[in-house]
Amino acid sequence: MLKRLILLLVPMLSLLSASVVNYLEHSPAANALSGITLLSDSVADYSLSPTIGHTGISTFYHRPFNMSEIAVVGFATAAARNRFILAGGSTYLHHSDYSWHNPFLSAAYHYYGIALGISGHMVYDSVKDVDSEYDFSYDLAARYSHKDYGAELKFLRVGSSDEQLTISMKAALSEGVYTATSYVYESGGKDYFRAGIQTDINQYLSVYGSWQNEPNRFGLGAKLGIEPWSLIYSLRTHPQLDLSHAIALQRNW
């Protein structure tokens, strides 16, 4: 029923962009980690934080709530220059009656464990290519990492109705097992918690897991990598809807 409801709402209200920033978590790593970018090493996640700190190229496919009518594809690249990392990419959501496009450009300054970054976003959504809307916003982020610990403060989509403040902390529970918790506050007054974990099973296989409340969702993912290439697959639950699937191919440099 809810699935039908979403399909009805999609062309009317562009729910995928207007509801919550959760729907911006399209990349497999963000899908698996519930958007906790402090644990992510995916280039595609520059759309959620300019301080990811990794360079490369990533392309992904995302199927929200296993709805075959909707396809989300994304592409991102990031390159380093001195202490700066420049990144750019876009995410495109296609439905026969609705499209949504979010290109972004970001820049971050890295100085040892400290990173400061900014991203600019343009969001375009269109119903049946007839009615459309543009929205511009920007992200600000600061990150500190030292050995097994880290912290991140993000203001996402500043200037839009999807503004979000996120505070995250990271610590290694034991060697090679990284965990993080996040507190997220949205402009409408809604807030929730997230927790995530990331660990390397061996040099080829890594796994991600996460949980968030409000709504209660779990994320799970795996990365199969033969340096510098990696393939990431993830899924994420929803209390009422089907699983969301995402898969990405990435090359780091």
Partner: peptide, 15 residues
């Protein structure tokens, strides 16, 4: 933005 990644590879973005 056109950024050289390796000796022979560039990434290009235009808007």
């Amino acid at each position: 933005l056109r950024q050289r990644i390796f000796e022979d590879i560039w990434m290009d973005t235009a808007f």
